[in-house]
Amino acid sequence: MVIARRLVSRLTLPVLLLLPALVIIAGLVGYPLVRTVYLSFTDTGLGELIYGGSTWVGLENFKEVFADEHLRTSLINTVVFGTACVVGTMVLGFCVALLLNQRLRGNLFFGIAVLLPWAVPALAASAIWKWLFDARYGFVNWALVNVGFDGFQDYAWFADRESAYVAIFVTVVWQSFPFVALSLLAGLQTIPKETLQAAAVDGANAFQRFRLVTLPLLRPIVAVLVIFSTIWDFKIFDQVYVMAAGVPDRSADTAAVAAYREGFALSHYGLGSAVAVVLFLILLAFALIYVRLVGREGEFS
C-alpha cells in the first residue's frame, strides 16, 4: 500500500509533464495518420468528407495509383528527382565541408556565405529562382546567352518537365547543401589530427588519407545525412507546388503535390489519401533504417 502510493506520487510529475505533448502528438499526428489510412480504402469525395457516408472500396484506390498515368508518373518523379537532389546535395555539401575544413583565409566570410541560403524560406527561394530562371528577363538566360549559348534566348524553363526539374533541382540543392556541409564540417573537426598525421607518416598521400581515414570515420554522419536528405527531398512540396505549377499536363508533379491536388483540387480525397499513404510507406522505410542506425550507436541507452 505504502509502496503503491509512493510509486504513484513518483510517477505523477513525469506523467503530468509528458501528457500535453502526448495529447498533441496523438491528436495531431496519430489520429490524422490513422484517418488517412482509412480514407485511402474509401471512395471519399467532398460530400462524404464533410458529412460522412463514404463506401469501402478495398484496394481500388491503390490499384488506381499505379494504373493512373499521372499518379504513377508522380511517384516515379519523386524517386528519380528526389534521388538526384540527394546526390547533388551530398556531393556539393561534402566538397564545401572539405574546403571549410582547410581553414583558408576568408573562412569566416565563406562560412556565413554558405549559411545564408539555408536561412531563406522555401517559398522565398522558389520565388527567387523562378525570377532568375524567367524566360524573357531572367538572369540565367541572359548569362547563358552572353557566354555563347544562343539557344537560351527566351528559353522557357518551365515549359516542360525536364528543364523545370533542372531549375527546381538548383533551387533545392541551393537550399539544402549548407546544412549538409556544416554537419559534415562538424564531423571532420572531430577527427583527431594525430590519426591523419600517423597515416601521413606511414606514407599515405592526401587522397589515400581521405579514402582510408577520413571517410570511414565520417560514415555514421554521412549515413544519417543521406537518410535525412532522402526523407526531405522525397516529401518535397513547396518548391514543386510553386515552380512546377505551369508545366503542361502537370507532368512535373511529385507524389506530395499529386496527393494534395487529387484531394483538394479534384475532391478525390480517397485517392489522394492513397497516394499520400504510398509516399508515407516509402519514407517510413527510410525512417526505420535511421532509427536502427541511431539505436545502434547507443544514443538511446
Binding site: L49, K235, G263, A276, L279
Partner: peptide, 12 residues
Amino acid sequence: MFPLVVLVIPLF
C-alpha cells in the same frame, strides 16, 4: 519525418 500531406486531409 512524416510528410505533412499525409495529415492534411483529416486535419482539414
